[in-house]
């Protein structure tokens, strides 16, 4: 694989008939052009861009973490750091709820771990009717760029289990870039938060796992 380089919109990434445009690039004549600011990656014939910034784009099937911002008689409006709020319908929770009792199940400001079941225009439909989903109680929320979520999770969840091990906390990562952290002590949560922010900033520096370990040791020393 070639070394990744930063490209700007409209920049020619490669020239050649045989290349195929992937995410955030387009083909014009013989050129593959960037449509977004980010890191260009060429894998065989496929050319794509890993964005360095930008708002989360909801996709069907994504599991996200959001917060209740509004309640109406049909369900809850969930803010998940997208460009528009998502909607969790009364029919999409695993329990029967009487009208007027919505606040007893999920109140304003409470945090949910939900799945996107439909994206149409500006409306994003959410559901809790899958295994492992539901309300997240206590803990803290951390927002990172959604394009850096794969780095935070690591290969087969290696990075996230490393952080859990180092900080003795429970962590859930939403694909929208919102991370929920809960530890027995508040210090553990703060430590996890610092490590997550470190990964976000250094996500494209090689040897990330070793750097994270060193960073955690440094935090440990500072505490003592």
């Amino acid at each position: 694989m070639e070394e990744r380089k930063i490209v700007v919109p409209g920049e020619i990434i490669v020239e050649g008939e045989s290349f195929l445009p992937g995410d955030f690039v387009r083909k014009e004549g013989n050129y593959i052009l960037a449509n977004k600011y980010g890191l260009a990656e060429i894998e065989g014939r496929l050319v794509k861009i890993i964005p360095l910034s930008g708002v989360y784009l909801p996709r069907k099937g994504n599991i996200i973490i959001g917060r209740v911002t509004s309640i109406n008689y049909r369900g809850w409006l969930i803010d998940f750091d997208g460009h528009y709020n998502g909607f969790l319908s009364l029919n999409e929770v695993p329990k029967f709820i009487n009208k007027g009792e919505l606040r007893d199940y999920l109140d304003y400001g409470e945090v949910v771990y939900a799945k996107i079941i439909e994206v149409e225009g500006s409306s994003t439909e959410l559901s809790l009717k899958f295994k492992g989903l539901g309300k997240l109680e206590g803990g803290q929320l951390i927002s990172i760029n959604s394009f850096k979520v794969p780095r935070l999770i690591g290969k087969e969840g290696s990075m996230i289990s490393l952080i859990k091990e180092l900080t003795k906390t429970k962590i859930i990562v939403g694909q929208n870039g919102v991370v929920w952290v809960k530890g027995e002590k508040i210090e553990d949560e703060i430590k996890a938060k610092k490590i997550i922010k470190f990964i976000e900033e250094n996500s494209f520096v090689s040897g990330l796992t070793d750097n994270v370990k060193k960073f955690a040791e440094k935090l440990e020393e500072e505490n003592e």
Binding site: P9, Y37, G38, L52, G54
Partner: peptide, 11 residues
């Protein structure tokens, strides 16, 4: 706009 990650055709 480019830094904000807004999709753009060119600069």
């Amino acid at each position: 706009l480019a830094q904000a990650g807004v999709p753009m055709k060119e600069m």
